[in-house]
Structures are given as structure tokens and as C-alpha cells.
Design a protein around this nucleic acid. Structure first.
Lengths: 344, 344
DNA sequence: ACGTCTGTTGTTAACGTTTAAAATGTGTAG
DNA sequence: CTACACATTTTAAACGTTAACAACAGACGT
């Protein structure tokens, strides 16, 4: 129970050398089952916890993983869930998590490389989990490679880079959502794109276009407007979209925040949702439950993806199987009350 | 620039012993300015970064601080801002942050003590930042004291415990908000309380009662209803409150999420805000901007509080001034468009 | 000039673990 | 019964830093 119990105490109690204790602790082979048992008993009895600093010094590992994300995303449901998933896995595997938000919009893209380098050198991180939009910046990927830091990316789609990655295909999911709207009879559907620095947004837009094209529906200039992921930008876009003479009967916003902005405007303008206008979002954020009616959206299994990614990273750190480098996960269409049949 | 540069390399380049380099790195006294300069040049030239594991091993410090919070709060704007503030200060001071969400609702309050103990022993944390509602549980405070871990609390009000704390007085701020509503001419004001496990909520309710009593306004049973901090609970309470024959003309919800729930119901029932009904929240969460009209609320300087708290903790860790143990910060009334004059 | 103090620098031994190499046992084939 | 291979265990030397103490230098009072 004492925090100052050392490997030597355990060795003495078990009547073996410290190296044998080390073997047991690290689950190394070549320990006789009986010995292993004896050591484990001693560990339990003394409540021994290996000293991470000593370990780190001797083995040149820190048992720390870093979560790198865009500070602008810090408040998003996405990042919070990633944190949760990563933490869950870290605890299981005996790793700790260091969170590192980045502010690369001020210093530009080169500043980012420097900032990453500084962070890696200063912190003793063993490996990095990269989240969007950082995970889609080759400068980030390459910088970490140059520093020889194991990394795993969470990404909105398949990627050629060959760097290990857990992804869900946003293009397919966006297509799914659009098809849902089309099935409800909507013909004039508007899409609100988001921050173009996010690859996810690009994929979602492509998925929208895929579905529209496949259904033979018209995509004119007015069909796609440019937001920036935020509620406010959703408001702005909606004002514009709904001011047109032949306004769409459905709006698919590429983030839930923007969709919430759309709904707010729609209510103000007297639209009934989904009677007059269907609204769909993407991400299954908290806000999707906090609007009325509840928002139809796409849910990625963020928690699970983060857990899996962390697992893969730790495998990599343990020098194990580098084979599995790309894992695909399925997003889900969550039908709620903000979408309904097109008005006649 | 090489990550494997050691203190010895620096010592050789500067022509001094490693101890002198150590002195310079740790800003210890008794180094001649000229020597210090020479060492600093060498450090710069080699891009030397002290090895944290070696440091930790020798000094029994880890340069890691832990942020302990309730996992249920993980998605709140509050916790996100605390994370940001803490990180800002940690970076300045050369510390790293370990985030530790706790799930003590399943295992009960005793489970919490064990969980904290396990976390402290396993992780090499030097000190802990406790956030509400953990910071108001004496079991948490006492457990850390027993483990001899320096701690600092972020709290919604003054506290007798004597443990160091940065707080903003929620009672006073809630009184301020209530007075604002009273000044607008409201006489029937409803208060929606939140999760009673949060001391903040209790203080906010007391502040509400303070103001009502001081103004000679009636507080009957119907004036205070019981929510649980969430949007959904706000919806539930609002349905009830607004179903009464003499419904209030203003509702003060003790969290923004609940206030947003209230607004959603009010819109559905055809109330105009703030024409027919004023709504106020607390926390200045993201959602306060994402409702229409924008929500009048109370803003705590969360970022700043977290920074200061972290600074105090690190001072403590450095063995410095333990004198300043309670810092009070001012919350601010943020007037937006959801509150207005009472209807005649 | 001498000792003494004070500020500066150096030396040596931890700190608790892993790694590499050496030593001991244990079983099996000849 | 011996020898050799192989599994298990021990020993000794890192790892890079700080802590404790020793040594040295120059300033100062006597």
C-alpha cells in the first residue's frame, strides 16, 4: 500500500532477484509458473507499483501517449468523445494521456511543424494520436515521421499516406443521409459545407453530390453554400438559402452546429420543421438533442474508434504487430424528428 | 536539436561540471553570471532538454499535474475551459497535464476514495486540480490530504476546509441575476434548481432566494423546481412551470442547458421571448449563443481561474509560498436578448 | 600574513528500473 | 554417467538527473 515500495522489496519477499520480479511485471517469458505465482503474491501483498520514472529512464519509454488536436475543436462533442475513448484504453493498458491542443491558425502551417517538434521534444510522449483536421495535414504526419514518433490517425476517410489510421467514410455516410432525404421526396436539397480545411467536410460534400447525381437531381450554384462549422455560420447560410424564391425543402448541413443554426432561423421565419422544411446534420453532437425537433444526423462511433486507435498505437509502441494499419468503421444514420416527407 | 543530448554534453561544451549545468537549468542560485551565460549558450547550441524520467527518478517529482473531474461534466463548456486554462499555465511552467475523469456515481462515494487512491498511486502525479462537484466532496479533499498530495480546488464559493481554493461566489452572482430580473419589473420569477450534488447549484438557489426575499417578493412552492442540469430536465421543468394558471413571467435556470430547454418549450407553447417570458441561465456555455434569442447568463472567468489555480498548485509543488490559499474571482452578468421588461 | 567566512564549483552516491551478460539448473541423447 | 542444449535465474552495469557534501577561491577582519 505504500507508494515507496520498490522492486527490491518485492524481490526480497518473494525470495528471488529483482530481475525476476521485473520479468513478471513486464510479462516476459521464461519464468517458472510457480515462481511467477510467488512473485505475484508478493506484489499483491505489498501493493507494489513500478516507478514510472525509473522505468522510463532505463527503458527509454515514458508510457505516455499524446492526443494532438486543433484547439478550435476542443469544445466539440467529437474531441470530448475521443478523449474518453483514448482514456479508456490507456487505463486498460497502463498508459497515461497527455492532451495537446494546437493553435496553428495564427502561426500558419509552418509554425505547426515547429510546434509539433517542440512538443515532442519537451514532453516525453511515446506516441501520438492525431485527430482531424490535424490528421489530414501531411505536414503533421511527416513531422512526426521525421521525429520517428509512432502515430495513429483518426480520419474521415481512406488515405493513401500509408500511415496507420482508423477511419469512417464520411463520403458514404453523407451519401446515405442525402439518399434518406431523397427518399422522403425532397428534390430541392441544399447542402451547407463547412470549413474547407477539414477533409471531413470535403468528403461529406462529395457524398452529397454523389447521391444527388445518382438520383438525377439538379445541383445548381445555390445548392451548396459555404459555412464554417459554427452555429453562427449556419444562421448566415440559412438566411441566404431561405431568402431565395424557390427555397429548398430540405437542408443538409455538414455539422450539427450549423444545422442548429439553420433550425433557429427556420423557426424565426415561421417554417415548421419538418413540415415545411427538413433539416439534417452530421456528427450527433450534444446539440442534436438540444434543438426542437431533435435533429436527424450521422453518428460516428467516435468512442470506439478512439479506443481502437489507441490500442493500435500501443501495440505499435510495444513493438508488436505493425501489420494492421488501416481500420474502417461504420457510421450510422440517426433518424430523429427534424426530417420528414417533402411538402407537396 | 538531438533528443539524446545529455547534461554531460552540455557540461563538456561549457567546460563545467554537470552539477553546474543542473544549477542553471533549475535556476538555482550561486552560479557566477558569466558561468551561467556560458552554460546557457551551450544549452541553446545543443538544444538540450533535460530528461524528465531521470529528473523524476532523482528528485522524486514528475512534473505532471492531474486534473480530476466528474466524467459527467466532460462535455461541459466549463470543463473544456478549465482544461484550457490549466494547460496554458502548465506549458508556461514546464509541467504536463494528465486528465482524470471520475465515474463515481456507479460505485458510490466510497468507491471514489478508492479510485482516487488508485489513480494517485499509479500515475506519478505531483499535484491535483479538483473541479466541481468533486472539489466540494470532503471525501475527495481528505483522501488527497491523506495521500499527502498537494491539491487546489476550483469551487463555487468560499469554503471552510482550509484547503487551497480559487472560487467565484455563485451565491452573489445568482443574486445579481435575480436582481436584474426584478429590476425589469418581474414579480413572479421561477427558479430551476439543478443536481443537488453540486454545491454550485445550492449556492445559486440561495442567491436567488436572497434577492427575492430582499425585494419582498413571494417564494411559494411553485417558485423552485428541481432539474438535473441537463437540457432535458429543463424541458421537463418548463412544461410544468408554464402549465400553471398564473405562470411566472421570468424563469431563472441554474444552468444554461436547462435554460435552453426552457426556451425550447416556450417556443413550442407560443411564448415570445423576452416579450411574454424572460429566460436566464448560468455558466455562459456554448449553448447560450446557440439559442434564439441569445441567452442572458452569468459568466465565470473560468479560464483565468484555472490558470491561477494551476499557478498556485505549482508554487506549492516548488515548495514556495503556501500563504495564499483562497483566491476570490468575480463572475459577470452577461446581458443578452432573452431577458426583457415584464409584460403588463 | 593568517584564519575565517561566503560564494562558487566539483565529486560521489543515490534514485528504481531495464538491459546485457553470466551463471545456474534441468532434461535428454549418447 | 557424461555432455550438451535449453530454460530459468542472478549479477552487474547502465540510464540521466538531483542531493549531499567536499573542495576551492577570493574577500575580509585581525
Amino acid at each position: 500500500m505504500d507508494i515507496t515500495t520498490t522492486i527490491e522489496d518485492v524481490a526480497n519477499l518473494a525470495g528471488v532477484s529483482i530481475k525476476t520480479v521485473s520479468r513478471v511485471v513486464n510479462m516476459e517469458p521464461n519464468v517458472r509458473p510457480a515462481t511467477r505465482e510467488r512473485v505475484q503474491d508478493a506484489i499483491r501483498e505489498l501493493g507494489y507499483q513500478p516507478n514510472p520514472s525509473a522505468r522510463g529512464l532505463a527503458s527509454k519509454r515514458s508510457y505516455l501517449v499524446g492526443l494532438f488536436y486543433d484547439d478550435l475543436m476542443a469544445e466539440s462533442t467529437y474531441i470530448v468523445n475521443v478523449q474518453r475513448g483514448v482514456l479508456t484504453r490507456c487505463r486498460k493498458e497502463g498508459y497515461e494521456l497527455l492532451i495537446h491542443p494546437f493553435n496553428y491558425h495564427q502561426n500558419g502551417i509552418n509554425g505547426l511543424a515547429e510546434e509539433i517538434t517542440a512538443n515532442i521534444i519537451k514532453s516525453r510522449i511515446d506516441g501520438v494520436i492525431l485527430t482531424p483536421p490535424l490528421s489530414d495535414l501531411s505536414i503533421a504526419i511527416e513531422t512526426l515521421k521525421r521525429l520517428d514518433k509512432p502515430q495513429i490517425r483518426l480520419s474521415p476517410g481512406h488515405h493513401e499516406s500509408g500511415s496507420p489510421c482508423v477511419y469512417s467514410d464520411d463520403r458514404i455516410a453523407a451519401r446515405l443521409m442525402t439518399e434518406h432525404l431523397i427518399q422522403l421526396g425532397h428534390k430541392r436539397i441544399a447542402f451547407i459545407a463547412g470549413h474547407s480545411g477539414h477533409l471531413a467536410i470535403v468528403h461529406r460534400q462529395t457524398g452529397f453530390i454523389d447521391a444527388m447525381t445518382a438520383a438525377g437531381l439538379n445541383i445548381d450554384n445555390a445548392s451548396v453554400s459555404q459555412g464554417s462549422n459554427t452555429f453562427e455560420s449556419g444562421v448566415k447560410c440559412a438566411r441566404e438559402i431561405l431568402s431565395h424564391e424557390r427555397a429548398p425543402t430540405a437542408i443538409f448541413a455538414s455539422t450539427d452546429e450549423m444545422a442548429a443554426g439553420v433550425m433557429s432561423v427556420a423557426h424565426q421565419l415561421g417554417y415548421s420543421i419538418p413540415g415545411d422544411l427538413s433539416v439534417a446534420g452530421y456528427d450527433n453532437s450534444q446539440i442534436a438533442h438540444q434543438v426542437w425537433p431533435a435533429l436527424t444526423t450521422i453518428a460516428q462511433p467516435v468512442n470506439e474508434m478512439a479506443e481502437i486507435a489507441t490500442g493500435l498505437l500501443i501495440d505499435q509502441l510495444r513493438g508488436g504487430k505493425k501489420s494492421i494499419s488501416q481500420v474502417a468503421m461504420q457510421s450510422e444514420l440517426v433518424l430523429r424528428d427534424s426530417t420528414g416527407p417533402a411538402p407537396c
